[in-house]
Amino acid sequence: MLTETIETVPIRSSEDIVRVRQKVRFQAGAMGMSLIDQTKFITAASEIARNTFEYGGGGELVMETLRDGARRGLRLTFLDEGPGIADIEQAMRDHFTTGGGLGLGLGGAKRLVNEFDIESRPGEGTRISLIRWK
């Protein structure tokens, strides 16, 4: 599988979450994803970016294009050095929330992408990657 980094987007404010949505929209559109796939991917990115900002204390998004044979895709990796998640299984469950949200962020985002991967250790931060194939 070939990967190519397109750019890194800082996530330090709630305006940055909007910027993440715009950057993802641009890349997904350039790749020729259908409107519905674009919308699902942007929404998932928005959920995770908010997670990075609110619970991770800010971080960054690394955007990469993927090529696997004839398949092309987009990978978004969200990194933060925040408190981390102690119980990932619990955090993935719908309606679980430590903030005041609907608690659909992680689990909901997972349903909107083709591949979802999360790594986190308490005190060491969180790394979440999302892939959507075209």
Partner: peptide, 13 residues
């Protein structure tokens, strides 16, 4: 719009 509605439902909202 349709794609927004589908995404929201999928998200669980």
């Amino acid at each position: 719009r349709p794609h927004v509605a589908i995404t929201l439902v999928e998200l669980g909202v």
